[in-house]
Design a protein around this nucleic acid. Structure first.
Length: 256
DNA sequence: ATGCCGGGTCCTACCCGA
């Protein structure tokens, strides 16, 4: 099973990029983040033509997630369980495929709106850990993949690419990521590449791509039985060299 | 040392991303 994630920074700007990548890579499931459109505006038709069914959780202007799958699936949740009912930010989608739970997330960045914005990020991570624990308690095989907006360790960003006080590297963010590892989840990309940079994002500014000043913030966390089936987990750096690219590249995880 | 780039929107100056 091939499961991918990609923060596309507007699906309307990246529609042909996604089409080409699906044709070349043929994942079973692709989670998208930052689609930046309302649900009816999502361009489903070109993906249907490639054999993919879409489920979209959109909102105006910001955020927005979706999943494209060429295998049958059931939609389980369209929002992260446990969040306040009036939270309208489109950041979570959960489906079931062949008895496996697959979750796509766009975790809050946490740098805007001061400490309130950072508190929102931490609360969101607390709810995510609760969801993961509930699935572990049920012995459900599951994958959580997407844009986590966390560099788990200092190996996960180029020196100077971020301030030490950035919400992506603050100890409170890292502690919450690490807690999910301690719960028994496997960071798939790090399991396959134990050391060194494996970036998934490069800023548009200051020649970050040309200087390889990247971040590793797009991840796939695997439940214990799925971790035993891990074959590969890699960012597709080639996408960052395409014309008008997203600032993130796809990350593809393969399970036997 | 964030706002250099590149999305978005009350259409155009301003908000947001990481």
């Amino acid at each position: 099973m091939k499961i991918a994630t990609w923060n596309v920074n507007s699906i309307r700007q990246r529609e042909t990029h996604v089409q080409r990548w699906l044709e070349n890579t043929q994942p079973d499931v692709l989670f998208l983040q930052e689609i930046k459109c309302e649900t009816p505006a999502f361009p489903s038709l070109p993906f249907h033509g490639l054999g993919y069914t879409a489920e979209v959780v959109g909102q105006k202007s910001y955020n927005g997630v979706a999943v494209l799958a060429r295998v049958p699936f059931n939609v389980v949740h369209r929002a992260l369980p446990g969040l306040p009912a009036d939270d309208a930010q489109a950041r979570y989608i959960e489906i079931e495929v062949e008895g496996i739970t697959l979750i796509g997330i766009y975790l809050p960045n946490g740098n805007s709106r001061g400490e309130d914005g950072f508190a929102y990020k931490l609360a969101w991570m607390d709810r995510l850990a609760e969801r993961a624990q509930a699935l572990l308690d049920d012995d459900r095989p599951f994958v959580i993949t997407g844009d986590f907006n966390v560099c788990p360790t200092d190996e996960d960003y180029a020196p100077g690419a971020l301030s030490p006080t950035d919400a992506l590297v603050r100890p409170e963010s890292r502690a919450r990521f690490r807690r999910m590892i301690w719960m028994g989840l496997t960071d798939a990309v790090r399991a396959v590449h134990p050391h060194g940079p494996v970036y998934t994002f490069w800023d548009y500014q200051a020649g970050a791509w040309q200087r390889d000043m990247g971040l590793r913030i797009d991840h796939a966390l695997l439940s214990p039985t799925l971790a035993e089936r891990l074959v590969s987990a890699d960012p597709d750096r080639n996408e960052r060299d395409q014309p008008q690219p997203s600032d993130h590249v796809p990350v593809l995880t393969t399970l036997s």
